[in-house]
Nucleic acid binder design. Structure first.
Length: 1003
RNA sequence: GCUCGAGUGGUGGAAUUGGUAGACACGUUGGACUUAAAAUCCAAUGGACAUUAGUCCGUAUGGGUUCAAGUCCCAUCUCGAGUACCA
């Protein structure tokens, strides 16, 4: 009986779907409420954005790994939840809609269909009954619900958690805002209880907005004109948009923001208790950017104004020789003197024109302008000139720095450039060439009360003295900014918000979801409103509690709705919790479900989400924790980043011949229109011209001579050109299908190949998989030709999960061959079409396992179990191969052994395992079978083949009993003829014997 | 520039606390079967010398610790990822 993988895989995929084999039990659904016998295990993949291109072989890598783990945990007796869904709001579908008019919901649904088909054919054990789609109103109802929760909350620094806004209102009514210690906007006016109670309703709402965890405020945002939307910091890479690479400019706009900065410290602390990859933790730490120092206040001379600065080096405060403000700083226009006005304004204009990208690319050019104003040093009372410079960023800290040129290289460079004095406040340090920033070696000098102190002490004392003056305090600063939450796009979650007199109002949760309205065009309106401005039915009726036509807006009971939509990360920030109870229409998830599932045990996905999805999700989780909705403040215990699978591009080579007269003048460049096989190119690169190449070159030169007459060409340059060729035209031995190549493109017709042994060998290079490089490998084709089980095994076999590694389809014959070999072991137990030489009955075939059989099996169990626990899937595939090779050699026909082996293999190659399991006579799915127990007694050895080394080099091996003593071993080894041969009469200085390991003879 | 990670055959990669380097595959070469091809099976396969036994060199490079180093320590080089005026 043949291993007919296509048939087997289709059969079992159908079986799993029909029997809901991988449906995870929920506490509420089980017989005994809240008490499922099995312990829970939650395995999660980062859900995909369903793009139009479908999957390539790189995409399922992480899904295969998580699937193996999920299936393994089922064998180990866990109630495993392994859900999958779609992050289906996003820019590509909308861009496509703008171009074609096709509704994004339609393209998205089509793409999801393709994804589902591709996922199904790989045989994942997903519980599809839990599927979520972020663009489904039934799902985004809860995204809107969370938004309302966040809006109705503030952050209490005293309790260090989010609290209901009602508690803040109560505090205001009682004591005003002076006693409240909250995370809020920067410039807040203080008010008493009496003030508060006398405020108008609108005024109260304005004040509360400054405290809410999501708030509407005019903020400086990253505006991307090409995409017509704002972008969050993590959506910008190198000053251009992550998607599309469009330029981004700074712009002030009224936007929803999320007060993630309130959670900066907890997001940092939380990293210590989760098992996530260090690089990922590092980049989150970096992104949060905690720095400890002090704030200091400098009074501005002749103005009623102060400059607030943040510094990490308050110990160097006596080294200040100037102040620098960001050009955008509010004070600049106020304090600039009439004489300096022209220069300052010109400078501000010049910096505004420079894009973010230019500013970043050009960090070496020093520029700035003097405002003409002076600040007063808090201690020395000396006047300090105030400058502006674009090396100070408006968005970080207070947008102003106290410049200490002797201790900071940027300040130093600025001072040098503008001839500002550089006072030295470090003992015994030369600062004539560069600034001195080594905190460890710092001893302060020329600094009044700080003289002679090292860094730490000086820092403490400086802060103490600043506090005494009332001009500063110790402070911790974070780089993390509040996250802009509005997008001027169509294809996203609508906000559950309407506006009364310009003030945002939440729609009551019982009226959710607020579904996306239909629009004619997906572009911004003529007046520059977001696409939802095109909707005709987009007003909120507060009486009927429903969305009505805009014409009904009466500014009394019917009000306009919010026109922005939520960003891509809104829907993905709590999806892992919704999976626990995905169809619940009453609440986001039931208490029972949440208490049972708790958190994600294993989360697998790409490292590109380090500072986006994974930071925002942790933020929302902490919020949900504060409000008592979830029991854990970190949502995923363990996270693994799978590496990228790169493509192996193929290249063909042509030459062009450049004829030069004398040293430099190019007379003529001639492409040869011949394709040369790789080895000839290799030779050329080593300055070696093969006769076959020479012939072509001569032809070109002859042709030239015919046209131009005889000349001496003493300089012939040969240039090699390589072109990508579609990898489907290349076989596993790198041979090009020359016929196919000629037909590939019209211009290839009739080209000549210069071959070796009749074969054209292409060049190979590892590159990112992409259409333009013609190196994309589609899993559909692999499944068709080799089967999903071969694909799964091969993806794991390629190398460690976290590492990036190149795909090479040729290698799949290895794992495919293994499966065939595995199959053959079971043939004696198969019904009907037994091959002639194995024609036996089952009972005849079955024999008792031999000692060797058991040894092979149990060493496989041990290794595979260890490997899975360590996520070392590549090595367990090798272990299976060794196991099958051994059992084949042993001609094993023990049902006991083969049953256990089928279970071991089943997480990796589930289809063949199910088939073999049923052929052995089992009627239930193999996924219900317990994992074989390891028994060490089968591995006990009585002897060991000792490596005998001389001076650390292994020379020969000797089989010795394991119970032999050190002395006995030495005796036997020394007496051995090969030992004497090695020593050649010398007496060894030392003999090292590690029983059970090694013998080393020194001398 | 800074932070982190990695360098092992022609290729992907093994090597658990320092203890037989190159497991397992791919590819290559030779052989069997076949009219032929495919498939399958068998054998060889780090390099150099040695046609037998065997010897020497080999885990990016140079040092060091050790009876013993891919593994530990120091320095250097190369590649990859992240980050980038963060005061």
């Amino acid at each position: 009986m043949q291993y007919n993988f296509n048939e087997i895989e289709a059969k079992w995929q159908k079986y799993w779907a029909e029997n809901q084999t991988f449906k995870a039990d929920n506490p509420a659904q089980s017989k005994v409420e809240g008490n499922i016998e099995k312990p829970k295990f939650y395995v999660l993949d980062m859900f995909p954005y369903p793009s139009g291109a479908g999957l390539h072989v790189g995409h399922p890598l992480g899904y295969i790994a998580s699937d193996i783990y999920a299936r393994y945990k089922r064998h180990k007796g866990f109630n495993v939840m392994h859900p999958q869904g779609y992050d289906s709001f996003g820019l590509p579908a909308e861009q496509y809609a703008i171009q074609t008019g096709q509704h994004p919901a339609i393209t998205t649904a089509e793409n999801i269909k393709t994804y589902r088909r591709q996922l199904d054919q790989i045989g994942f054990s997903f519980d599809w009954s839990r599927e979520v789609r972020t663009s489904d109103p039934k799902y985004y109802k809860w995204t809107q619900w969370i938004f309302i929760q966040i809006f109705n909350s503030w952050y209490n620094k005293e309790t260090d958690k989010a609290e209901d806004i009602e508690t803040l209102i109560a505090a205001f009514e009682k004591d005003g805002n002076t006693a409240v210690n909250a995370v809020c906007d920067d410039a807040i006016e203080t008010f008493s209880a009496a003030d508060w109670n006398s405020f108008s309703d609108k005024r109260k709402q304005e004040v509360l907005l400054q405290y809410r965890l999501t708030y509407l405020a005019e903020t400086e945002v990253n505006w991307c004109p090409a995409l017509g939307t704002v972008l969050a910091n993590d959506e910008i890479v190198n000053g251009v948009s992550e998607r599309g690479g469009h330029p981004v400019v700074r712009k002030k706009m009224t936007q929803w923001s999320m007060r993630i900065s309130a959670y900066a410290q907890r997001l940092l602390d939380g990293l210590e208790k989760i098992d996530w990859p260090q690089p990922l933790k590092d980049s989150q730490t970096n992104w949060i950017g905690r720095s400890q120092g002090a704030s200091a206040v400098f009074n501005v001379n002749e103005h009623d104004a102060v400059i607030d600065v943040f510094t990490t080096r308050p110990d160097t405060i006596f080294g200040v020789s100037f102040m620098t403000l960001a050009p955008e700083h509010d004070l600049v226009s106020q304090i600039t003197t009439p004489e300096q006005k022209a220069e300052v304004e010109a400078y501000i204009e010049a910096t505004a024109k420079r894009s973010e990208r230019d500013r970043m690319a050009d960090v070496k050019t020093i520029s700035g302008a003097f405002t003409g104003a002076y600040a007063e040093h808090p201690f020395s009372k000396e006047p300090i000139p105030i400058w502006i410079g674009d090396y100070v960023l408006a968005g970080y800290g207070t947008g102003a720095v106290m410049s200490v040129p002797c201790g900071d290289q940027r300040d130093y460079d600025f001072a040098k450039h503008f001839n500002i004095p550089i006072p030295n406040i470090f003992e015994g340090v030369d600062i004539s060439e560069e600034a001195f920033a080594d905190k460890g070696k710092t001893v302060i000098a020329n600094s009044d009360f700080l003289n002679g102190l090292p860094y730490k002490k000086a820092m403490k004392l400086a802060i103490y003295e600043l506090e005494k003056l009332g001009q500063g305090e110790g402070k911790i600063n974070y780089r993390l900014r509040d996250a802009v939450f509005s997008r001027q796009r169509y294809w996203g979650e609508p906000f559950p918000v309407y506006y009364v007199d310009g003030m945002p109002q939440m729609i009551a949760p019982e009226h959710l979801p607020i579904a996306l309205p239909e629009v004619e065009k997906y572009l911004p309106t003529e007046t520059g409103e977001p696409p939802l401005g095109n909707a005709e039915v987009w007003a909120w009726d507060t009486v009927a509690n429903k969305v009505v036509n805009n014409s009904e807006i009466n500014n009394n009971t019917v009000w306009p709705l919010e026109l922005n939509t939520m960003p891509g990360w809104a829907g993905s920030s709590q999806y892992f919790n919704r999976y626990m109870d995905p169809t619940n229409e009453e609440e986001i998830f039931s208490k029972e479900a949440m208490n049972y599932w708790q958190d994600v045990d294993l989360y697998i996905g790409g490292s590109e989400h380090a500072t986006g999805h994974l930071l925002y999700s942790r933020f929302w989780q902490k919020f949900m924790f504060d409000k008592g909705f979830v029991p854990k403040d970190e949502f995923a215990k363990k996270l693994i980043n799978q590496g990228m699978i790169t493509g192996t591009s193929a290249f063909v080579y042509t030459l062009s011949i450049e004829l030069k007269d004398g040293e430099s003048t190019t007379l003529y460049t001639e492409p040869t229109f011949h394709y040369f096989t790789k080895s000839l190119i290799d030779k050329l690169e080593n300055q070696e011209i093969d006769p076959a190449v020479q012939k072509v070159i001569d032809q070109v030169v002859d042709k030239y001579k015919e046209q131009w007459g005889e000349k001496t060409y003493w300089n012939k340059n040969i240039n090699i050109h390589k072109t990508h060729v579609d990898i489907s035209m290349v076989n596993s031995s790198d041979e090009l299908n020359m016929d196919a190549f000629q037909k590939w493109r019209p211009e290839n017709e009739g080209v000549t190949f210069v071959v070796e042994n009749g074969k054209y060998i292409v060049g190979r290079e590892v590159e990112k998989m992409s259409k333009s490089k013609y190196n994309v490998v589609n899993p559909d084709e692999i499944c068709e030709e080799y089967g999903a089980d071969s694909l799964r095994l091969y993806e794991m076999f390629l190398g460690p999960l976290e590492q990036s590694k190149p795909w090479n389809t040729a290698g799949i014959t290895g794992t495919h061959g293994f499966l065939k070999k595995l199959w053959r072991l079971y043939v004696p137990f198969m019904d009907g079409s037994l091959s002639e030489d194995t024609e036996r009955s089952r009972s005849e075939a079955e024999v008792k396992p031999t000692k060797d059989n058991l040894k092979t099996l149990h060493k496989t169990i041990k290794k595979v179990e260890e490997d899975i626990e360590n996520f070392s899937f590549n090595t367990s595939v090798s272990t299976f191969m060794i196991c099958v090779n051994e059992l084949s050699t042993q001609k094993c026909t023990s049902k006991e052994i083969l049953e256990a082996l089928a279970i071991l293999v089943s997480p990796y190659a589930p289809h063949i395992a199910e088939e073999l399991w049923s052929q052995l006579g089992n009627s239930k799915s193999i996924s219900t079978a317990p994992f074989p127990a390891f028994d060490a007694s089968y591995l006990v050895e009585s002897s060991k083949e000792y490596p005998i080394s001389f001076n650390g080099k292994m020379r020969f091996k000797l089989e010795l009993p394991l119970d032999m003593s050190k002395d006995q071993i030495e005796e036997v080894v020394m007496a051995h003829e090969k030992t004497q041969q090695q020593l050649q009469g010398r007496t060894p200085k030392k003999v090292i014997i590690v029983p059970g390991k090694i013998v080393n003879i020194v001398g």
